[in-house]
Design a protein around this nucleic acid. Structure first.
Lengths: 343, 343
DNA sequence: CTGAAAGCGCTTACAG
DNA sequence: CTGAAAGCGCTTACAG
């Protein structure tokens, strides 16, 4: 109790050297008001002199706050997520928190383990960006008994009671898709194919396909099941989807891809087969990643406010941690049609 | 001491209910051998029944191991880093550790703060991927007194004494660049420009430029200062660099970009100005990000083993944490020329 | 094999 | 304003 284990200097050591109680030393460390100027100064000096650094683990055990937020996401390799992460990072840094990241990978396994670990490590909150969350996962999230924020994620619950507990940040995916396809139609395209994500994913595939169909139906255009390709938000999916479309007897004249990654893969496939974009086939993407401005031609896309989604996520998280909000809230941010040269 | 603060169940609660000492409960939790089968079974049952979850913070305070590794990197938005992160993540998950991520952003500020925080939070080790590390940063890293691994990072120290303490993972940047440029030369290009990174960065710019110059000199080709553009590893840098080259009175016939991001930006610029690739101008990149396979034409590039750099980084980290290695080690991984259609 | 006790490094009422 | 003490939830010698 009096001898240091290694050369780590503890608050206790500082207190002794400054001839004050450890409580007083703690008070100056935490900027508590009731400390005499004289002792405060003395303690500060000794801290500086001894190179004292507070032990966060010890503090966390007592205060039950780790100043650390967990982030679980699908695939950091997709710039869409990376951009959101940038927003999260900047805001987290500003608030003096740390970030524990778990990248599930495209397969998305390990989710239960990831949630539990974040609970066990007493993170102050968890942000999730990924596949739709079902009742089982939702329950695991709730079991951690920590503030939660879902970004760009559909929370699909059979048990509606749970709804009130969730905070989420999204855009209006259905209308975004609708607007994108409408744009194609206004440009004169009539045979419009769809490159979607995982089939049935309420997150992006379902609402965006709905927007796609709404637009086509409204304009009386044909919805051809052969012109719908499912996959991931990846180059590969787009590439394969487009190759498939262009090998059909009845070829589409435009493609709406629900991710820019897929749109870029689709463009590649079209070029390889000698098609011109936008003359022979139009392409429109979704997300608005930086990359979309560096294809040739530039990709037209429905841009999501990725960075802002990240900053808002942390703000919503801090609102909860600091007790400024009670029940769940769903924040809807604006998307935006960015016109490029691809359609 | 006997009453629970909230509804969290502690080891103490488990012990009482199972009528054993808390020490015994701890022993079964940690799979220590010397526990009677009977008590072990009883404790396990009670844990299950009460939904006990160990508190990592408390455990960490005692064991001085947080089972958490810190990762500091430059720009998660660059797929090169994201790919390394994937390797790190998979290996970290396998070893049952967590990852605290700090994305510095392209500016790279906050480094001192990031290092200190990771030390204060008692992370078990720190991995750094970023700009070159100078004596000051190196000292901060050492002050944390934790295992360190530097990935794709030049550690430039005036104080050579420090060298032995560092573990790093790199490729041979100079030879990689040399090979890339040689490839251009063999393809018949003679007026070869360079799009580099931050000027003077020992990390990538300096060694890769050296390789570039070595190749040109060996073949007796002219090194034109006007054909060297500095910037970042970004689309924008490549785009601006190429625009600049193509506005010169003496235009290069090929460009070596020291990142794929820049190479892609360069291709975009060339296309916009009506140049054909590879006929009018050849392009070769560096890194081998997935993206390079989805440009049209496909980008020829010097591919780095990104995923493996990540897994190796964690292995080297665990070697240190678990005391299997003593002094620093520099691991050199293989790069590889991936031939596309861009030159 | 097992329980009681000390201790990891802090913070926070509590009594002065 | 201040110090001594208790306690955060674990682990780990220690003595039996």
């Amino acid at each position: 109790m009096e001898k240091k284990t290694d050369n780590t200097v503890r608050l206790q050591d500082v207190a002794k050297k400054a001839s004050v109680g450890v409580g007083t030393a703690s008070r100056v460390l935490n900027n508590h008001p009731n400390v005499s100027e004289e002792k405060r100064k003395r303690v500060l000096e000794v801290m500086e002199e001894m190179g004292y650094r507070p032990n966060f683990v010890a503090r966390s055990l007592k205060t039950k706050s780790t100043k650390t937020i967990g982030l679980i996401l699908m695939d950091i390799t997709n710039p869409f997520y990376a951009d959101i992460l940038r927003g999260i990072q900047d805001e987290v840094t500003k608030a003096d928190y740390s970030l524990i990241l778990t990248d599930l990978g495209t397969k998305g396994n390990h989710l239960p383990k990831a949630i539990e670990t974040m609970g066990d490590k007493k993170l102050d909150g968890i942000i999730y960006i990924g596949n739709q969350v079902d009742d089982d996962s939702a329950q695991l999230f709730l079991d951690t008994r920590r503030p939660l924020v879902f970004v760009s994620t559909a929370v699909i619950l059979v048990n509606k009671e749970l709804h009130d507990d969730f905070f989420s940040i999204e855009i209006d995916n259905e209308n975004g898709a609708y607007e994108g396809v409408m744009h194609l139609i206004h440009r004169g395209y009539k045979r419009i194919a769809l490159i979607s994500g995982v089939k049935g994913d309420q997150n992006s595939s379902v609402p965006r396909m709905k927007g796609y169909k709404n637009a086509l139906e409204e304009k009386g255009l044909h919805i051809n099941p052969q012109w719908i390709h499912h996959g991931e938000h990846s180059f590969k999916t787009g590439y394969e989807g487009m190759k498939g479309f262009l090998s059909l007897s009845k070829v589409p004249d435009a493609v709406f891809a629900i991710s820019d990654m897929a749109a870029i893969g689709a463009m590649k496939a079209a070029f390889e087969l000698g098609y011109r974009i936008p003359e022979d086939i139009g392409v429109i993407g979704f997300d608005g990643i930086t990359h979309s401005a560096y294809t040739h031609p530039t990709l037209t896309t429905i841009s999501q406010p990725r960075y802002e989604m990240g900053t808002k996520a942390i703000q919503l998280m801090l609102d909860q941690i600091e007790g400024r909000v009670q029940k769940g809230r769903r924040v809807l941010l604006d998307y935006r049609l960015v016109k490029g040269g691809s359609c």
